[in-house]
Design a protein around this nucleic acid. Sequence first.
DNA 1: AAGTGGTCTAGACCACTAT
DNA 2: TAGTGGTCTAGACCACTTT
Lengths: 265, 265
Amino acid sequence: MNESKGGSVTYEYNVIDRESGQPIYIQLANIIRKQINAGKYHPGEQLPSEAMLVQSYHVSPMTIRRTINLLAEQNIVSTAQGRGTFVKAVRIGTAAFYLNRFQEIFSDEKATTVKLIEARLVKTDERTARKLKITVGVRAIYIRRLLLVYNQPAFYHCEHLIYDPRRPIVESELEVTILKGLFSGIGSPLIKKGELQMEAILFTKEEAAILKTPLPAAGLFLEHIFFDFDDKPVSWGWFICLSNQLRLHTSIGLDLSKDSIYDNF
Amino acid sequence: MNESKGGSVTYEYNVIDRESGQPIYIQLANIIRKQINAGKYHPGEQLPSEAMLVQSYHVSPMTIRRTINLLAEQNIVSTAQGRGTFVKAVRIGTAAFYLNRFQEIFSDEKATTVKLIEARLVKTDERTARKLKITVGVRAIYIRRLLLVYNQPAFYHCEHLIYDPRRPIVESELEVTILKGLFSGIGSPLIKKGELQMEAILFTKEEAAILKTPLPAAGLFLEHIFFDFDDKPVSWGWFICLSNQLRLHTSIGLDLSKDSIYDNF
DNA sequence: AAGTGGTCTAGACCACTAT
DNA sequence: TAGTGGTCTAGACCACTTT
């Protein structure tokens, strides 16, 4: 019943299997992706029009649209109303480095332990006050932690938290804190958004000592600010680590390994 | 004609304007995003079912689906078949750092100039041969360039290119090369995919001298391999720069500034 | 005018989850 | 069994581009 017209039983892999359970629009996207990969359409070239694809694959226009949308989201094709759909060329600017490796480390509860180095109330200095949008001298919680992966120092974390006297600090919270969910995958319901910035830095003496690395050493500095639902900053801080702890890699262009759309993390 | 039933002229901003030209599914996504932002739904809470939304906003199920899909793509909600749609909590692992700033620099032809430091045929060493998947000792093109932004050294680029004797090297190509399109936005039709890796490094004496920076200095190392449509590596190399040349920042969670879907780069 | 992508409808049918 | 999200149809209508 899935044979193409003509009655031949020749196996065609560029054909939709309606029994497979995989959505048609994904099957179609994979078919087109394979065709591009095989060189049937080169960057800059035009794909068949949606009307043509509707005829070729015997699906509804809406389904073709979903297919094209999917490919467009994945930066494989671009669409131009009135002109057509075209294969995109690889551009380095579309590269994205994700922190999922970072999260993996933090959610591995067996391997990762948190060592509290310091936690105290401090009077905020100018910079901290500016970041947390409070007045200089107002008290804030200052926490320093060392995160060990398989008992090896991996991340040094400094953090300034808004101090709310109505919510007394529970000792045990300091090692894990509000932010735990941000890494473990649960997420904090109190945080609305965050801003992150990454830089390469030279380690200070103290940082090198804490991370047990000889000087001079270079590493990554990952700054974060988190905001609550009133758009007020609640946490400002940074992670410092050796580059090999946070290897950032990505790929651009066609990658047939991401056959499925279910690669959300 | 756009008044809600009851004849009242009270202005409601959480209402769909069918004359606005903006697609309904985007308007609806913005409305829901604003409601989440305003605290109407908190992370972990369930959104109204799609059937409810169909009734509330008088649109078809398909349109609601597109809205929910859009919010899911933007990591704002998550869907679970049979259970419902839920507001997502902020998770640091969803952060993505983009190289669009990198591309901006390279496509600004007025500000950016390329200075060729060295270009010659070399016999490949073990590492280069491995990366380019060729035999050790086979000739390759080795190019070193300095990219200046407003006449200041910004990026130091080393690159190994497959040498194809059938295509003689044109002198003038060396300063711009095949890869130009990768940055300028045109893209190369010969490249199918690329792999990128980023690290923090200590500058060598040579690198510091070229980038006119005192030692010791830390910077970013961006390695790239590009593949052609035969999945053969054609270029392996790396960019080295000071961290401030490639500031990497991003935000996670709700961000009302990305109202439109048209923020592709 | 003909062809292109883009949105939207008003359902049908299915798979999954809870009760 | 009732409610949920997920896919798909077979069109209609629109905006835009090219000829």
